[in-house]
């Protein structure tokens, strides 16, 4: 499986670390809403299809990435930075897009 890092270009999955389900909404740290905490810790959509995931390019630029991966085909339809990088120093070189 290849993941196309927005900074580094296409890289083998061995360079990436899965950081979990990208659909989770973490309650406020002081929240005592046990339902919300329970949902954050345990509830997963587990879709057969497109899935929002967080990956880190831990063996590369180390950026955290929001990835949409199809759980049936492993096809990846979208990879973006979790945190916006507005500067042009984060745009891939044209040559990396081949």
């Amino acid at each position: 499986m290849l993941i196309t890092c927005p900074y580094c270009g296409p890289r083998d999955v061995i360079e990436f670390t899965y950081q979990g389900d990208g659909n989770r909404a973490r309650p406020e740290p002081a929240s005592q809403n046990f339902e919300a905490w329970n949902a954050y810790v345990y509830d997963r959509l587990n879709p057969a299809g497109d899935h929002n995931e967080i990956w880190q390019h831990s063996g590369g630029c180390r950026a955290h990435l929001r990835v949409v991966r199809n759980t049936l085909t492993h096809e990846i339809s979208s990879v973006t930075f979790v945190r916006g990088h507005h500067g042009s120093a984060s745009r891939p070189e044209a040559e990396d897009r081949s």
Binding site: C61, R62, H85, S88, A89, P92, E93
Partner: peptide, 19 residues
């Protein structure tokens, strides 16, 4: 640009991650 760099033989600079 991402991963862009330059070297003059004595000094070198390159991007290795966003920013």
């Amino acid at each position: 640009g991402a991963g862009a760099g330059v070297s003059d033989g004595v000094k070198s600079a390159f991007g290795f991650a966003p920013g």
